[in-house]
């Protein structure tokens, strides 16, 4: 047993060393890599799916996706959901989050090496304490801004299987279906999402048509969900360029002033 405990982390660390990507580095931005909603965490590689048709078109200025040639490219079935909704009687697909989140195979390695349920024992309480390790590889977690200090890592992450999340009963939840986990606390938003009001879907609008559903973490950063003082669920993005001024308009000063500036007798 002791030998296994010593061996497992070594094996994990050796895997880590052999991993082709840098541990905390970005995905390869070479070629045309664009992002869907979250910059750097919803990357898509542009490629040809049919002659003359690419899977996506990218914005030349911001790198955001402007067009899906095939909205269901690279998706998997959403799978069973606990409550019936549109996705129950339509073909519902999601883009798997695991490849994005675990692109460096870090989570896999952690599960095998240290957090296997034995080597690092399950903590006794949830009292806040500074992490002694991983400050470098989990930058988001060091600035956890979610739940106003009432929740911590293992309320969402599986203690032993790091490639999984957990629901209220400790059952494993896939990273591809974070809505099952997030819905635990955010019930109202979850219901809205099920109705198609909150969040985003692409594909066919018609009843019964195939739809790709966006899941929570495709737009929100679960570790910094309030975005600091901005208190907003969505991180700031670079805007696309403003329209060209019409002929004869020298500047946009007229827009910036209010009331008296452009002769408006507004009140």
């Amino acid at each position: 047993m002791i030998s296994y405990r010593l061996f497992a982390p070594l094996m994990g660390l050796s895997l880590l060393a052999a991993s082709p990507n840098p541990v905390s580095g970005e995905a390869d931005l070479e070629g045309k890599q664009c992002f869907e909603s979250r910059k750097d965490l919803s990357q898509v590689q542009q490629r040809e799916i049919k002659p003359g048709v690419t899977n996506i078109k990218c914005s030349p200025t911001t790198g955001g996706v402007l067009y899906w040639g095939d909205p269901f490219d690279g998706t998997i079935p959403m799978g069973d959901m606990p409550v019936e909704a549109d996705y129950s009687h339509e073909e519902a697909v999601v883009k798997p989050r695991e490849p994005q989140i675990d692109r460096n195979k870090l989570l896999t390695i952690c599960s095998m090496a240290c957090h296997n349920g034995e080597y690092v024992p399950y903590p006794e309480n949830k009292l806040a304490r500074p992490l002694t390790m991983h400050k470098d590889i989990v930058p988001d977690a060091m600035q956890l801004k979610h739940g106003k200090q009432a929740i911590w890592c293992l309320d969402c992450h599986h203690a032993a299987t790091r490639t999984k999340l957990i629901d209220n009963y400790g059952n494993e939840v896939s990273f591809n279906q974070p809505q099952i986990l997030c819905g635990k606390c955010h019930g109202q938003v979850y219901r809205s999402w099920r109705d198609g009001i909150h969040g985003k879907r692409i594909g066919m609008w018609d009843k019964g048509g195939k739809k790709r559903w966006w899941v929570c973490t495709e737009c929100h950063n679960p570790h910094d969900v309030q975005q600091g003082e901005r208190n907003s669920g969505f991180a700031q993005l670079d805007p696309e360029p403003a329209p060209i001024l019409p002929k004869g308009m020298l500047n946009t000063d007229h827009e910036r002033g209010h009331g008296q500036d452009h002769g408006g007798t507004t009140h």
């Binding site: 869907e36 996706v65 985003k200 692409i202 066919m204 609008w205 009843k207 993005l237």
Partner: peptide
Amino acid sequence: GRWTGCVEVCPVGARKLGNLLDPDS
């Protein structure tokens, strides 16, 4: 049957399009 370009591309999902005659839309 496909959603419009603007609905699909909105990064925050602010845009929705549907059938006004369908009470479930």
